[in-house]
Design a protein around this nucleic acid. Structure first.
Lengths: 215, 215
DNA sequence: CCAATGTGGTAATTTTTTTTACAAATTATT
DNA sequence: AATAATTTGTAAAAAAAATTACCACATTGG
């Protein structure tokens, strides 16, 4: 049925930050917050925050502000964090292991089922309670376990091949850490973490900063 | 002296991608490329690419396009990749180790000098030729070695404290992997890699995708 | 050497995003 | 209870970013 209008990517990428600050406020037992206060925390303007939130509904109340617990809950719902996602990681190097171990993801419902690697020395090892499996068994595992999300932590040379297997096995979301742009069918969502691009951006900003200092 | 006008962040964040694709073309021994072809590779429009590049100079030639080697070199220069950056990593867990090991960064001039950690079991270990040092020695090391970039791979609880030490010791660029917004003086540049925000964005997109499939 | 084609640079336009402004509703204060 | 102070939701305006359009120039092919 006709959704009103698509929310812009610019808005969507701000939501997780709101969610994070709301979570911190919740931990500190703060009950209410105004867009003005949220602006001071996040660095976005108060007006932008109000407009962003209004894309999804009127969660605030004039003269009062937003109820922290309620808004946090609503943002979680908007972000899809109320359900559990079955997640696997391909590539059990340091990066894959780092993600597997990170408690924050598990806490928000991303259940790490298994790691996959091609290295015989790693296959069979258990990290905490997550097993490293043979990448040969990847496709069967995804189908049997109805995996939702695949994380690619492999070298770039094999990342497309892995992506193809993930998609073929029915995965609908890929979190890609390889420095490539994956080609996938249009019904699969991909979120890239391109560390090289991030570092090069930092390099640019540092260079400009130093240049300005010279003047 | 007066720079013409500040280049927008939107443009800057596209540059590393251009640089990456140019590098691939260079490896494939392709000599020339038009904005149209680059558009097909990167997914940006040809016009946008031309406009982006023109912020920094006219690197192309009408009727010919861009010389791959030359443009790659120029982009490297714009991004500040022609020089070497002395880099340290604070937090020698899986993530810190992953970054320390990644050859791609070293190749572009980011020289990883050392890792720092608080864990006595890690201190003194050598990963390849990079030593894990006591975080107590962090500030002295930075001053003695004139470190350019600090990478924060610690838990969020100590990330601000580490950032303060980095800044105090003279570091001008921070690559932050902790899920926090660091407060630093205005003459320090910070680039965040907020993995939680990235994953939550993926979660949002997956949720929307599934919702649309139901309709 | 000439014409046809390809292509970058850039101005003009359109679209998107952000900011400003303010009415309506609520809470706090006296 | 009345008034003042907050604060949201949203319309309007402004700013930023992306697209379109086109000229000038270079290359290519005859």
């Amino acid at each position: 049925m006709g959704k009103k209008s698509k929310v812009s990517m610019a808005v969507i990428r701000r939501l997780p930050k709101y969610y994070r600050y709301l979570g911190e406020l919740l931990d500190r037992d703060i009950k209410r917050i105004s867009s003005q206060q949220l602006s001071e925390l996040t660095g976005f303007t108060a007006s932008q925050i109000r407009q962003d939130l209004n894309n999804f509904g009127g969660f605030g109340q004039q003269g009062y502000g937003y109820n922290v617990e309620e808004l946090h809950k609503q943002l979680g719902k908007i972000l899809g964090l109320q359900k559990t996602y079955k997640t696997i990681i391909v590539g059990a190097g340091n990066l894959g292991q780092a993600i597997a171990h990170y408690r924050g993801f598990q806490r928000e419902g991303f259940k790490m089922l298994a790691l996959f690697d091609i290295n015989p020395r790693l296959i069979g090892l258990k990290l905490w309670d997550i097993e490293i499996k043979d990448v040969e068994t990847l496709e069967d595992f995804i189908k049997e376990n109805e995996v939702d999300i695949g994380v690619i932590c492999t070298p770039k040379e094999v990342s497309q091949e892995i992506a193809d297997k993930l998609v073929k096995s029915g995965i609908k979301a890929i979190w890609n850490f390889a420095p490539t742009d994956l080609k996938v069918s249009k019904d699969v969502v991909v979120e890239n973490v391109h560390l090289n691009e991030s570092l090069f951006t930092l390099s640019y900003l540092l260079k400009e900063k130093l240049k300005k200092d010279e003047e």
